[in-house]
Amino acid sequence: MMLLNLPYITVAILIAMGIYAMVYKRNLIKIVIGLSIVESAVNLFLVSLGYRRGGIAPIYTSAPSTYMVLPTPQALTLTSIVIGVATTAMLLSFCMVIYRNYGTLDSRKIRRLRE
């Protein structure tokens, strides 16, 4: 039983790790890495929701059996991955521009906007 829940435990650990990185790491790149870890965790969660032991890929054309994994979570994950790539790319390019102008990626120093 424990083994079946393993994906969900992994998801919880990964989300905790990602959020830890986002809250406690001072380097902007590491914050983005933390975000990516959370994103992978959520994607893993979605995929493992639709998984069935021994199920086959949900392609109906000449399928050997109709015991298939759920296709919807996979579609969701695919969309989520695409969005995640766009977000990460944008965040990293922001990091680049910030580094060029501020000369640092330390989040304690990148706070000209406050109060």
């Binding site: 965040l91 922001f94 990091c95 521009v97 060029r100 990148i110």
Partner: peptide
């Protein structure tokens, strides 16, 4: 870079 900082935080 200040607007980029705002954009980063928002994103």
């Amino acid at each position: 870079g200040v607007a980029t900082e705002a954009g980063f935080k928002y994103a």
